[in-house]
Design a protein around this nucleic acid. Sequence first.
DNA 1: AATGAATGAGTCTTCATTCAT
DNA 2: TATGAATGAAGACTCATTCAT
Lengths: 195, 195, 195, 195
Amino acid sequence: MARAKNEDKRALILLTSKTLFAQKGFFNTSISDIVSETGLPVGSIYTYFKNKEEIVKVIVEEGWADLHARLLDHFRSTKDPLEKLQALIETFLPGLFDDLDLINILLAEALDYTRIEEKLEELTKMIFSVLRSLAKNNDIKLEYSKKEMEVALIVYFLGILHAVKLARSTDIGVSIPEIMEFVKKSIEKTMGLKV
Amino acid sequence: MARAKNEDKRALILLTSKTLFAQKGFFNTSISDIVSETGLPVGSIYTYFKNKEEIVKVIVEEGWADLHARLLDHFRSTKDPLEKLQALIETFLPGLFDDLDLINILLAEALDYTRIEEKLEELTKMIFSVLRSLAKNNDIKLEYSKKEMEVALIVYFLGILHAVKLARSTDIGVSIPEIMEFVKKSIEKTMGLKV
Amino acid sequence: MARAKNEDKRALILLTSKTLFAQKGFFNTSISDIVSETGLPVGSIYTYFKNKEEIVKVIVEEGWADLHARLLDHFRSTKDPLEKLQALIETFLPGLFDDLDLINILLAEALDYTRIEEKLEELTKMIFSVLRSLAKNNDIKLEYSKKEMEVALIVYFLGILHAVKLARSTDIGVSIPEIMEFVKKSIEKTMGLKV
Amino acid sequence: MARAKNEDKRALILLTSKTLFAQKGFFNTSISDIVSETGLPVGSIYTYFKNKEEIVKVIVEEGWADLHARLLDHFRSTKDPLEKLQALIETFLPGLFDDLDLINILLAEALDYTRIEEKLEELTKMIFSVLRSLAKNNDIKLEYSKKEMEVALIVYFLGILHAVKLARSTDIGVSIPEIMEFVKKSIEKTMGLKV
DNA sequence: AATGAATGAGTCTTCATTCAT
DNA sequence: TATGAATGAAGACTCATTCAT
């Protein structure tokens, strides 16, 4: 009885807000902007979300969960660490780069709204374990300690995200394929193998 | 004298705003916060700056100019590219890392208020020319093209800044000295020499 | 059976609302508060009551009717005006004082939602007639005219209620037994007899 | 320099709000009502008061302080306790009754916004000391203990205020002069003297 | 009848900027 | 020039009530 909560509306609010937050920033996007853009009445925003802050939080949380799940899928589809690495580079990263809105939000506001450090740690661990297996399998002597790898991965990941963001929104003179190429070459150099 | 007093006020506004913007963000800092913190009357803020936006712009612009000048000073103090590189690593970077407030502002809001891409380009060019001389002087065959170096420098620079920011404000499990160490090692690996 | 269930719901709404209105006030109590506290669906509130206002009105109306009925019962149980007076003082007043929630609502909002003056008049008449019979029976010469008695009863009644309210909710330094004692002594003084 | 805060505006806001609060109640009076009625811009309300709640608090606080001061003046103007009592009855009470708006606010909302019990205690002490001197001077044996007097004064005061409120706003059948008369007679009875 | 999502007018409050003094 | 009161559009959010299911 009574109307059931409408999943489509929730999704519409999230999608619209994500675009707006990415374009204009969280603070420059008003609830009234979201209302105009979605065509929903103000009240409806609040039947689906406690407040404006919760909207960003959910965008980040669900966006990240999605990325994470996709990566896990790729990792589970093979045992070979090299294939895992390839999946990471050829499928996961481009997929992530497509979600520029999420990247924007993550880099701009996520710090205040979600534990970004936990997410980075999750990711770092997964990649580190792949690289280690890869090294083991191919008899590669890694020149970096665990801690060094950790630092490297964090710096790379944040750097790549930010570079992609700038690549799309400014005249930085660097393209996304070039960034992809850089990532690939770096890994190849570090691991001494072709991907 | 009166002039000096005015400069003091301007500087006070900039310093206070910088701290506040870095701590609470641009949008969560009100002019009235700046007024309370500086003890100046509201009107004064507007005799020194056109509006709130101009305050961030000046903070970023002057902050960057300062960094840039410091780097140039170091570069001019020697002809030896290795010494230049060392100055970069041992003086410039730590100096930059000390200005965490500026880093915070640059990464969070700068995009909207200043041409960060131009600044990155400036920096990239300087470093690139150092590395090239270094390679030439030491007969190192650089394995990266100019474009690749550009991409690499951008990714590294942004990644390092963001990592430092996170290192200070969250529990990311990575310290600034570790980040410094990573930078050094990366350069040594890439250039095949000790710094 | 189904009917009984409905009566239960209606009663639950009234009881819960009464507590909430007394605790937080009518305007600080939202329908949603009543919903949370009762566990009933919002819609149910509106199948039992036209709107929020009607809930207070019913609380006051039924609460008063109950008090009135109890008083009448006591009065009917005896012919002796002295016993009536005693019933009034020893049973009715303490009973009323126990319904602090009703007192709170009556004093705070009743004016807007119910004809409190009619209720006061009803009560005043009953008490006045008791006192008159008492005076007659005991050959007491009342020093107050009818009008004066009316004023006195109104002032006393309102003053007592408000004092009880304050006694319970603030640190007024006066207890309910002390108020009871004052009432008794006043009547004894006025009527020149022991109760 | 700059405009000085305008005492007239502050007074206008207080006066207007007092009337509105008394007429429609605190919760039924919106800031926007105050704005319409005063003709001031919204912002101005907030340059003079922190928020809506502060407006009531100030109304009550300043209103009470005024009453209190007036009473003190009367008390200081004479040493004779009988004259003090007369001042109380013939000047202070009528003055208070004229400020019906304040009475309304005091009885309706004061509990939540001001320590009404402290105010009652202040008043009670003053009156009690007058009555005691009076008793002493005239060799009257007071039949009430200090505590009893306290209770009596509280009940009387609250009862009178509430009765006056009802007398003005409803059809309670009792007039303010009649209430005044009752007060006078009660005191005369209790103290055994003419006022 | 029962339900609870839907609605949007209305709430209080903020705040960058202006301008009278 | 220095000041800080004045301004009002815009902000996020609430909530009694309705009505589709």
